[in-house]
Amino acid sequence: MSADLAAPFVPASGTELSIALLLSAFLFGLGIVGFLSRRNMIIMFLCTELMFQGAALAFVAFSRQHMDVSGQVFVIFILTVAAAEAALALGLVVLLYRCRETLNAEAWSSLGESVDSADRAAEPIGTQRGIA
């Protein structure tokens, strides 16, 4: 890497790192809280993107701190993967919406089992009633 490009690239101070990491943690926390509290699938997807960006910010901050560009390389990969994943995820959301006519995530819970059906599963195989 040539010197003129590297000249403004100096290690950040401890305070700067702390601020960057706090921001990163804030973004990540925001993503988690949003993901857990909202039911709209698109919002939830956005929240996962927020968590991604929080993590990416931490990478950048450490990269600057340690004067090591591999952290920034990582961020580029994250962005790429996030872009591809966004295309997939939005496609999925559209498909899911078509099935249930709603974006509410609670409409999709058929993998779980209610407590009484769980007890039924504990019975011997031949005696199970038909699954509704």
């Binding site: 857990l36 039911r39 769980a118």
Partner: peptide
């Protein structure tokens, strides 16, 4: 078992 009620947020929690 209560942790896996089928809701997406449940898994997330």
């Amino acid at each position: 078992r209560p942790l896996y009620g089928g809701g997406l947020q449940g898994y997330a929690v």
